[in-house]
Structures are given as structure tokens and as C-alpha cells.
């Protein structure tokens, strides 16, 4: 049967999605439509039908129920709640992945969780950067990155910054190009492509008054590592993440910002 597909541009990495299941492709195209592009693929994801029973109730939080297991040279992705339910696998030698589509049609959160995991491990293996929990704002040609876990205030910042062009408020891809670090929107939460050179990294803390102070590169590295998705998978992955993080903290100024729930911070940040 013919396999057709389309190519996504995720952080300037062309990712080919293909299948002989036209219905699934149509649905996936609907989910990631804003990121469809052209280009010679560097990563390929095949959607393959399976008769195995993948449960429907993968949680809304894309990451909380995905378990990553090394399978020889491949990396397998499973659901924690249903250990027998393999979402698919990634072969880092070939830069190919297979997503198992249920007979009854794919589930939107499954394909989001799977493609996020595959893309992250692709980046780790190619030492291309990583996806991090962060919000990002672009203003005046500069990007401001706010890494942090849920509840840290990173989404509040994007809402409070007047006239902000939001790159993302949840999953940001960071990659280096020609000596500078860029942040990119990603298709797991956003619907359009956006990017900016990272001019500042600011770690947000909710407080009752505004205070911004520089943090040491090692402190910044610690916080960045803690927010990189799947960085604690194994020592070899962490080695690669550490190298990139060290370089970022050398090139980009890092601060922590205590802020109250008003917009007074942005004039201090955007100096």
C-alpha cells in the first residue's frame, strides 16, 4: 500500500510523518497543521496500525504518563498506567520512529506525547539542543526565556507582559546556530511557528515584590537541567545536556526574578 505523508518544521528540523493510513494522517495534519513545511527530512515518523489495545485515557498532561525504556539500540515509549501499551519506538541510528495507531483511530494526546518524546531523544542523540519547560517572549528582536515547572509563574509572565509576542508558554525548543542560541515554538502546545534569539534567561519566582538579580552560571545550569524534559533518562543523555547547558550559561546572561502579580517587571527585564 502507498505510504503518503507530510513534513513538519519543528525548530527548523524537518520531520516527516508518513503512513498508509490516510485517515490517521488527516487527523495528525489537523493537530500539527501550523507547522507543516517542506525540506529534506532529518527525522521520520511512521504511523502504523496496531491491533493492540492502547487505552484511551492518557492524561491531559502529556508527559506524566509516558515511560521511556531502552530496548537494545532503540528507545521504547510506553504508558505508565498501562505498561503493556507501547506507544511506539525510536531508532536513533536511523533517525526513524514508529507510532502505533490503534485500529479505531489515533488519540490526539497519544500522538502529541509520542512525537514530543521522539523529538527530544532525537535532539539529545544529535546533540542538537533540547525541549524545555519554559515560556518565551519575543520583543524588539530579542527573546526572553522563562524556564520553570508548573506553578512557577512562567505562563503568568506571558499574560502580564503588555503587547508580548509569545513564542510559547509551555514547551520551548532551544538550539544553537552560528554561535547564538535560539528558542522555537513547538507543536505540542502552540499552533504557529515562532522563533527568537535568546537574549536573556530569567528564572521566575512568585513573590510579593519585584526583585531581579543575576545568578551564577552553575546555578543557572542547575535550574535549566531540572526543566529539560527527559534529561534524567540516563547518564549519557545527561552528559550531552550538561555540555549544551554549560555553553548556554556562558553565552546568555541568566537572572532570577521575584515578581508580584502585576506587569511592573517587564520594564526591568527588557533593559
Amino acid at each position: 500500500m502507498n505510504k503518503t505523508g507530510f513534513t513538519l518544521d519543528i525548530a527548523r528540523v524537518p520531520v516527516r510523518i508518513f503512513s498508509d493510513r490516510e485517515k490517521s494522517l488527516g487527523l495528525i495534519e489537523g493537530v500539527f497543521g501550523g507547522f507543516i513545511s517542506r525540506g529534506e527530512p532529518e527525522l521520520a515518523i511512521e504511523v502504523r496500525e496496531t491491533r493492540r489495545d492502547i487505552p484511551e485515557d492518557l492524561p491531559e498532561d502529556l508527559l506524566s504518563d509516558v515511560k521511556v525504556i531502552r530496548k537494545g539500540q532503540n528507545i521504547g515509549f510506553y504508558t505508565k498506567a498501562f505498561p503493556g501499551a507501547e506507544l511506539g519506538f525510536f531508532d536513533p541510528r536511523e533517525n526513524k520512529a514508529v507510532f502505533f495507531d490503534r485500529g479505531g483511530g489515533f488519540l490526539e494526546n497519544h500522538i502529541r506525547a509520542f512525537t514530543l518524546a521522539v523529538f527530544q531523544f532525537f535532539l539529545f542523540h544529535r546533540e542538537y539542543g533540547f525541549v524545555i519547560h519554559a515560556s518565551g517572549i519575543r520583543q524588539g528582536g530579542r527573546g526572553y526565556l522563562f524556564p520553570g515547572p508548573s506553578g512557577s509563574g512562567k505562563t503568568t509572565i506571558t499574560a502580564l507582559w503588555p503587547g508580548a509576542s509569545v513564542v510559547s508558554d509551555e514547551f520551548i525548543c532551544i538550539r544553537e546556530s552560528k554561535g547564538a542560541y535560539f528558542m522555537y515554538s513547538t507543536p505540542w502546545k502552540e499552533t504557529t511557528k515562532s522563533e527568537a534569539v535568546i537574549g536573556k534567561i530569567i528564572f521566575p519566582r512568585k513573590a510579593d515584590r519585584l526583585e531581579i538579580k543575576k545568578v551564577s552560571p552553575a546555578s543557572a545550569a542547575l535550574e535549566l537541567l531540572s526543566n529539560i524534559i527527559y534529561s534524567f533518562y540516563d547518564a549519557s543523555i545527561m552528559e550531552k545536556a550538561l555540555g549544551t547547558v554549560k555553553d548556554i550559561t556562558k553565552k546568555v546572561p541568566c537572572s532570577e526574578m521575584r515578581f508580584a502579580l502585576d506587569s511592573s517587571f517587564w520594564q526591568e527585564v527588557a533593559v
Binding site: 551564577s216 552553575a218 546555578s219 533518562y233 550538561l242 555540555g243 554549560k246 550559561t249 556562558k250
Partner: peptide, 20 residues
């Protein structure tokens, strides 16, 4: 144990514990 000296300080990672 992955580690890096960053300027004069250092970061060590206990991968299994998920701690830096």
C-alpha cells in the same frame, strides 16, 4: 555521574535520583 566545572563552581548529577 555526569559533571561539569562551570566557571569556578560545579554541577554533578545523580541521574537515578533525578537530583542535581
Amino acid at each position: 555521574v555526569p559533571w561539569r566545572i562551570i566557571e569556578d563552581e560545579a554541577i554533578l548529577v545523580e541521574v537515578k535520583k533525578g537530583e542535581v
